[in-house]
Amino acid sequence: MKGLPAGLPSLREVLSRHGLDARKSLGQHFLLDPVLLGRIVAQAGDLDGRHVVEVGPGPGGLTRALLATSAETVTAIEIDSRAVLAIEELRQAVNGAEGDRLRLIEDDAMRLDLASLVPEPRQIVANLPYNVGTPLLIGWLRQAASWERLTLMFQMEVAERIAAAPGADAYGRLAVLAQWTCRADLLMRIPPGAFLPPPKVFSAVVGLIPHPVQPPPDLFRSMERLTAAAFGQRRKMLRGSLKSVGGEALLDRAGIDPQRRAETLSVEEFDRLAQLL
């Protein structure tokens, strides 16, 4: 039967035993409340039979919440050697009765092809380090077809940028890339006081469910070029900001007014431009 073994030390004990003070250089802020961690994992839906990848488990709070579900396997990716020792202890406690249900990989998630590590159906559930959350997400969006769902925690500003609608202040390149490839929803907000140490800002959990049809790699690269140009000079009209990728000629072919600004374009209009580009 899946679940957590009895007699595990508290997360505070784990922090103390392994000297796991949160390091700013690693973007670490730890969640220790098991009820809150359970609520976060619940946002991922029914994990029965799923192979879940977690990035940056730290002392293992979210890892424990994942193991308490009916997930088939949990694969934890950790770069901090102190946290590796903490998760290794948990791995040994779990795998004594559960085979290889919890796997631990000591490596930098930025360098790994996560989809190659676990079979389908696969999901990512993670409280992402603040300093690498955005580049990690963009890398995963390039392979969105590989994932059933991504349930990710970011600092609030980034979460709002992912889920923003056209015309909103937060709407930009990240919103277009995320919503072009996935349904993106801001699922829950988490106050700074829930973390150890408390960050200066709220955090939020975002749910991303990939669309059934995904853009091929060359089209994704075109969209990255397009959105980088459009939002790199967002105060300019499109005829100016898109000069490097076709400018007015591209906009004319797409039937888009060159006097508009990037934040007014829908994801569908960006798709039309990327297809032409």
Rank of each mutant, 00 (worst) to 15 (best):
A93I: 09
E157L: 06
L128S: 01
V158T: 08
H211L: 14
Q143W: 09
V41P: 07
A109S: 08
R142N: 11
L90M: 07
A144M: 07
R221D: 15
L187P: 05
G240A: 14
E268A: 15
L37R: 02
L66P: 01
H29R: 09
V206G: 02
A76N: 05
D271K: 13
T134P: 04
A164W: 01
I162S: 00
R234I: 12
P119H: 06
R17D: 14
D257M: 07
A68V: 12
F202I: 05
G193Y: 14
R50D: 13
R234G: 05
R235M: 06
L117E: 09
Q214I: 10
L226P: 00
D185V: 15
N95C: 09
K243T: 13
A184E: 08
I40R: 00
D252L: 13
E224M: 13
L219H: 02
A159V: 11
I190L: 11
S81F: 13
G139F: 03
L251M: 05
E98V: 09
I40M: 04
D185I: 15
Q143M: 12
R82K: 09
D80E: 08
P216Y: 10
M153H: 00
R12C: 10
R189D: 14
E89V: 13
S244L: 13
R122Y: 00
L4A: 11
R234A: 09
D252I: 10
A163P: 02
W180T: 12
K243G: 03
L66F: 00
G60H: 01
L11P: 03
E98I: 11
L15E: 10
L67D: 03
P217W: 01
G139H: 02
N131E: 13
A168C: 11
F154P: 01
A194Y: 04
P121C: 05
W140I: 10
A71P: 01
Q233L: 12
S116E: 14
A184W: 02
L31V: 11
L141E: 08
L137A: 06
P135G: 07
L85M: 14
G240W: 08
R101F: 07
P166E: 09
P198F: 04
L117T: 05
R261L: 07
D169Q: 15
A194F: 05
F231H: 04
V176I: 09
P216E: 15
R221S: 14
G232R: 03
L177R: 01
Y130G: 04
G240V: 14
P5I: 10
T181D: 08
W140L: 12
L137T: 12
A83M: 04
R221A: 15
A22N: 08
L15Q: 11
E263G: 05
T264R: 10
R91H: 04
L26K: 03
Y130R: 02
L196V: 15
E89S: 12
S70R: 15
L114R: 01
D80P: 03
L104F: 06
N95P: 05
L208R: 00
E13G: 09
I40N: 01
G133D: 06
V267G: 00
P129F: 05
G61M: 08
L85D: 15
V94H: 00
I124E: 10
A249L: 11
M110T: 13
D257Y: 02
P34N: 07
Y171I: 10
T73V: 08
K243M: 10
P258W: 02
S266Q: 03
L141I: 10
R17K: 12
N95F: 05
V245E: 01
L85K: 15
R64F: 04
V84A: 06
N127L: 07
L128K: 00
A170S: 11
L177D: 11
